[in-house]
Design a protein around this nucleic acid. Structure first.
Lengths: 234, 234, 234, 234
DNA sequence: TATGAATGAGGCTTCATTCAT
DNA sequence: AATGAATGAAGCCTCATTCAT
């Protein structure tokens, strides 16, 4: 699925309007369209719309209107609304996990590595609010669509092994206490990093916007790091 | 249908404040109308439906059908779908905060009190998934409805002062380190307790259901307590 | 129907909130309410609402809300919406014709009398836009309700005789040409005086607001007088 | 259903400008879809219904039923009831003004030209009662919709210049007195021609049907001509 | 591969009116 | 004479989806 990358390049509004006539030398010379590009464009818009409005809140008309193509094409490529949503969900996970893969921790001492992981996760969630929102939406729907995607499931199991390695090293070094399941460490980091984005609106409204300022976020980031490090400390 | 109010109140856990058992001896005995009961019934059903399906996902017809009254009466009492949602949201907050008020911490030593607060919050969230879901839904809607409710806002600001007192006592006693804003302690407890419920479905699907078992929840509950206590420790 | 006068006194917002306890000496002592006053109040509000919004555009709820009494009472007194509309229409005609009766022309020379009649009609229509609007509305409804009111019909036939007398005197004096039916003179005066009010909005929008200014109205008033006088001149 | 456009256009007097008879020889021969025809058909029916029942009185279901298409298509083409009403209003004005354009006056002597204009206007209004009714309805609505239509506004400003020219010629020839604004002449002619149609029902009911007979209308037509000519005479 | 037109089903809301006390 | 609660019918509009070319 080499097209996926292209899709996400498009996601943030990178226009393809500058793309010129297709490669005449290709076997498909003469075709004016670009199926993969159209798919990617639809997916990017759909992700944005579903993320903003939820599954039932999103409108096929609206998605189509923001697309470079027509409503009919969406059905042609994706079948129906729910399938489109599922594809958007998968795309979102794929993109996020892809970012995570870039994080190299093995060369760092365990505490530093954990620190780095926490901060990375915190920042990564913060920088991917659309993804966070889709996960919330998916939870609202009881994970019904995630359930159908084997692809996503396999993507995530890998995330745990990174912590597993890191934690083992820390225990071996005597800097981490024993007896904590790596999954629970992942849970802890995720909980705080996720909540920070998912509940930003209601939390701000109830308790003031101070934690959403640059300073506030800096403090929370430090808190999360501190909480996790203290949690695993001997 | 005398006693309808009570029935609904108990059935759905609605508060009975302000509603009295009908006086059988009064001249109004035998009344068929029961506005408060109808209102409460509608609200309870609406809360359930919005929580399950979201704002756009919920159906007025469905809500009406599950009600003891008609669709028309919902509009009579609540005006429109969004207002009903807002009232359901308010009811949910009211109910939850009301539960929190019952928690007395002042007679306990600071560490014990914090421990108790964490465990209570964890359990309380766990026991009120409908509320958690409504808050998620509200975040999906960018807090647009919460924003309109001064009632909810005032309810919550009070929640902070409880932590404020507790934390001050701990600092005075020398068992808590200085320099942490009480709001951030609240944030920490909330983040984990909320995430535990809100993301249960997706987390289970991605990493297995073990953390949702009784044992898993016990472990997480302990982790959250541990994380918070270590976080504030000197 | 002595109450009619009271009704119109109320029409322009004269509150009755100052009315104190009913006359204890009357045969109805002990009654708290004032049926005639309530009727009059309802009618005045209804007239305003129907005039502003039309028959189908007016809302019983709105009328009731602006009333000093409840919706139920409107039905109690007037039966249904259409009957209320009819009564409002009758009240409007009654009031307007009543104003016209005050105009005394017999002591003036024919030309002066006609001049006076024209100016009076022009001003009278201008000062009773609610009535004009009700007549428009009634025409939209093909006069279906007017048709049912014998009262109104009898009120109006009288209006013609005034012109008849005036015109005869003018012809006898040799200042008016012969052969014009008085009804057509009435028609002429009515047409311009009515249109001036009825079509004020659309005319202003299409051709500018200048004819609705004080100066513009002064000019039109002069034009109408001029047109009518020239029309009957020998 | 080829030819549908023509059918509707003739059936309801809609203009055919811009719609072409389908080319039977073209590759698209045999098409089942005819957007312009559907639009025109809806508009013609809507005009009729709004004119008969008013904006709030008209029923979308009723309009749809009388249409060759479905209720859904009305929303597809016009968005909502108010927009449909606005388009119907615009169509009515367009049609009427179009008729007026056919009137050539420049080759006639001023008095003859004015006579002709008056009679034409009188007849034209008489022959377009649906238009008159829509204007009445629009006035009931305080011109709220007319206000939104720049198209209508521009259509009408042109109507004045015709009188301007005519009046100037008459003044130059010494047959019309000086100092009358053309707009006020237009007002005078409009007032009587409009009232004749708009208030026909109530006037007949109050003062008898004689002015609505052929003879009565002939007399009124003469009166209006006479009134206008005398009004501008030196 | 692509598209504008079309649609049935169902959504939310409002209306004038009546009921029970 | 008076009232708040209740209601069936009908109103306007939107949705995801498919048709015909």
């Amino acid at each position: 699925m080499a097209g996926g990358v292209i899709a996400f390049a498009l996601e943030k509004g990178m226009s393809m309007s500058g793309t010129q006539a297709p490669d005449k030398g290709s076997p498909r010379a003469g075709w004016k369209q670009d199926p993969e590009g159209v798919r990617a464009n639809i997916l990017a818009i759909a992700l944005e719309e579903f993320s903003t409005n939820g599954l039932s809140g999103a409108r096929m008309d609206e998605i189509a209107a923001k697309t470079k193509t027509s409503k009919r094409m969406i059905y042609y490529y994706f079948g129906d609304k729910e399938s489109l949503y599922l594809k958007a969900l998968e795309a979102a996970y794929r993109k996020v996990r892809q970012g995570e893969e870039e994080l190299a921790l093995d060369h760092l001492p365990p505490k530093d590595a954990l620190e780095r992981l926490v901060e990375f996760t915190f920042d990564h969630h913060r920088n991917n609010p659309a993804f966070i929102r889709l996960v919330m939406i998916e939870n609202i729907h009881h994970g019904r669509y995630l359930e159908q995607s084997d692809e996503i499931k396999s993507l995530n199991r890998a995330a745990i092994s990174k912590i597993e390695t890191l934690y083992s090293r820390g225990v071996a070094d005597g800097v981490f206490r024993m007896g904590i399941e790596p999954l629970r460490i992942h849970w802890l980091i995720s909980a705080m990093s996720f909540f920070n984005v998912s509940n930003a609106m209601t939390f701000s409204m109830l308790f003031g916007p101070e934690l959403q300022t640059a300073d506030g976020q800096g403090a929370l980031r430090g808190d999360v790091r501190e909480a996790v490090l203290r949690f695993v400390a001997v």
